[in-house]
Amino acid sequence: MGSLYETLYDILFQPQVGMRNIAERKNVGQAFLVFLPCMIIPIWTFINAFHVNEMAKMMNIMIVFEVIGGMVIWILGATIWNLIAELFGGRGSVVSLFTALGFIHIIRLAIIPLWALVSFMPENSKTFLTMLSMLSVISWAFYLDFIAIKEVHQLSTAKAVLVMITPILVVGLLCIIGTIFIGNFLMHMSM
């Protein structure tokens, strides 16, 4: 367990070193150990602390969906980014990247102290601050994703950024092409 503490410390305070170590150790079991509570605790807190009555009725289902959804995104993220990183000349393995992305879920817990802080703020600013806190956690997670890709695959900063944004660019491009095709099809239909 000692190495888990060290890994978590490194992720939070010296992410480059942390990601390099994770890539070497490939401890998938520990990544799962971090992933599960980090998926469950924030949603449980949200439902119970904010008394979302409608959601409370379906809490168990929501937690299951959250975990399954998180798992799918984790696996897809690891495989797609790994594939693109290899295309860009990356030298890491998919297991290393998968493990690193699993550890990054620890950042989700940062939302809890932020919510606690927001709960003391004036009522009219709460929504904005809640959104801001979530955005900051997401940004931090993205930064760590970037570090993970960079360190696991030993890529340059520019290439790591490209690997990160390539899936978004591809999806955007597909949407544009799809819109053009559908628009063209509808235009012919109406004529």
Partner: peptide, 14 residues
């Protein structure tokens, strides 16, 4: 501990 404290505080306040 800080996260757990925040969690407890949130639940209590809630």
């Amino acid at each position: 501990l800080f996260i757990l404290g925040s969690l407890g505080g949130l639940i209590f306040r809630g």
